[in-house]
Design a protein around this nucleic acid. Structure first.
Length: 511
DNA sequence: CTTCACTTGGG
DNA sequence: CCAAGTGAA
């Protein structure tokens, strides 16, 4: 094929794989010599704790990506291909590489988080000054930006119609893999002076974590192993197993999706095929992928939700503040609220960087509706701790739980933490895993130890307040306070409804 | 010169 | 998947 460019650079960011990779594919197709680069961004790293499983996950995955690129190049007659890894200011390092390698175009995949969009726009401007083009591609989601719009041409704000339109647009082509290997001969040898080993964690300013003790294999090969097992053993029952935190139901692919060590097209393709074959589990799992697209698209169209509630009437809600609120937040984040399921969930997050989806809902609801704390505090905590943290999904789901988002859980629907516990961890298997001090309590008492008789507590070897905390709030009392707290929203929504009804009456009168 | 089978590009 | 292009019969 005739190529229009001599040289190009692929800037890897959250797409750490060499197969079915949009930017890599386009670069290889258009340029005779293609280099690949990743930058550990000093500004981004500076905001992270010294022990961060995600930095380790990325570093491991870069080693795998480098090997993947070398092998791909070698099998197409190109020795010394590979990944150039830098540590510095992301944008500056890329511009520097472009000049040093005399690159004619940079290829990257879209990152639609507001800060990333701003950064990429700056890079585009700087590159333009050197006469270098920047080409962006969709890669992270199945459908992005304006690809799925309502009949009126506006973005959807309710999931169900969005999902229907999403499914309608889905076809084999959108889900087909970018055939990277077809053009792999364009992978260029990395010049001697650019061949540097991938920096160690220490060199990056980090310490090792327990990542390798977790059941989370890294890199594209790790993702494929997880996927194979999930498809073979669990996806068809996902609809019935996914709500039970003690059951191995989910795919555990969230972190791989986050860093692009797996292609979302591959996942959607597998789920879609099984959906068409009648698998109800696959259909529910596919809808989770669509939720991810939905929240990405919402963030793209409404970047203000990073700082503000999507529904403006919630700005007026007064959250608990001050010393007592801070103490409640500390109890929540450290897993000592006295509500076993919530505490077990928060400990799972602390110890592994993962939290089961059902528990994300339960613990979020508890923070907002039992403790009366601003959802943004919880959002920030999850952002810090979740291996699979993704701004769009995390913000979207927290706003869902708080009732402030698009298509949210209504604010007056308040999860009962004990009922949720009995329903989704009936035998207390999950609770016992993280709270061994409660292990001897019988199944019916483990969900609310403060209701156990002294004799039962004694038999289980528990002294409340010593071995396990008293509940930090009374749920029924908290519920009443929350309903009152959201009174301002009720009034605003009622006023809105009245205005709407009057308008309807007026237009009806005209007809 | 037409037709069919096959490949390639698009996202 | 579909449209457009290619090459052989």
């Amino acid at each position: 094929m005739n190529k229009d460019l001599d040289t190009a650079l692929v800037w890897f960011r959250r797409d750490l794989r060499a197969d079915d990779q949009a930017a890599l594919y386009h670069a290889l197709r258009h340029a005779r010599r293609v280099w690949c680069a990743f930058v550990f961004d000093t500004e981004l790293l500076a905001g992270l704790p010294r022990q961060d499983r995600r930095v380790e996950f990325i570093r491991d995955s870069l080693i795998a990506l480098d090997a993947q690129l070398r092998a791909l190049g070698a099998s197409h007659g190109s020795e010394h291909a590979g990944l150039i890894v830098r540590h510095g200011h992301g944008a500056e390092e890329i511009v520097r590489l472009v000049r040093q390698l005399h690159v004619q175009a940079v290829y990257l995949n879209h990152d639609d988080a507001p800060e990333a969009l701003a950064r990429d726009a700056r890079v585009r401007g700087e590159l333009a000054e050197h006469g270098v083009a920047l080409h962006g591609s969709k890669d992270h989601v199945v459908f992005e930006r304006n690809e799925v719009l309502s009949g009126a041409g506006t973005p959807y704000s309710v999931f169900t119609p969005y999902f229907n339109a999403w499914l309608k647009k889905l076809d084999d082509f959108y889900l087909s893999a970018y055939p990277v290997s077809r053009h792999a001969a364009s992978l260029a040898p990395v010049p001697e002076e650019f061949r540097q080993p991938i920096p160690s964690l220490e060199a990056l300013g980090f310490e090792t974590t327990n990542l390798h003790q977790l059941k989370l294999p890294t890199g594209a090969a790790g993702a494929q192993a997880l996927l194979e097992e999930f498809l073979a053993e669990r996806i068809d029952r996902y609809d019935v197993t996914r709500d039970f935190p003690a059951v191995k139901g989910p795919s555990y692919l969230g972190t791989h999706l986050r860093f692009g060590t797996v292609s979302v097209r591959q996942l959607a393709r597998e789920a879609w095929r099984r959906t068409q074959a009648g698998s109800s589990g696959a259909r529910v799992w596919l809808s989770e992928l669509a939720w991810r697209d939905f929240f990405q698209q919402i963030l793209f169209h409404h970047p203000r939700i990073v700082e503000h509630p999507y529904r403006r009437e919630f700005e007026a809600v007064k959250w608990e503040k001050g010393k007592h609120a801070d103490a409640l937040f500390a109890a929540w984040s450290e897993g000592r609220t006295g509500y076993p399921l919530v505490d077990a969930a928060m400990l799972q997050l602390l110890q592994s960087g993962y939290m089961h989806n059902r528990l994300r809902m339960v613990s979020a609801s508890f923070l907002v509706k039992d403790l009366g704390l601003d959802y943004k505090r919880g959002e920030r905590w999850f952002a810090l701790k979740l291996n699979d943290y993704e701004l769009a999904s995390n913000n979207g789901n927290w706003q869902w739980a708080a009732g402030t988002g698009c298509d949210p859980q209504p604010w007056f629907r308040i999860f009962h933490p004990v009922t949720q516990s009995k329903k989704f961890d009936p035998q207390g298997r999950f609770i016992r895993r993280y709270l061994p001090q409660l292990a001897k309590l019988p199944d019916d008492l483990i969900h609310a130890p403060w209701l156990a008789k002294p004799v039962d507590l004694e038999a289980a070897g528990i002294e409340l307040g010593v071995d396990y905390p008293h509940p930090v709030v009374d749920h029924e009392e908290a519920r009443q306070k929350t309903l009152a707290r959201f009174g301002v929203v009720r009034e605003a929504q009622a006023a809105k409804a009245v205005a709407k009804a009057e308008k309807k009456k007026r237009t009806a009168g005209v007809d």
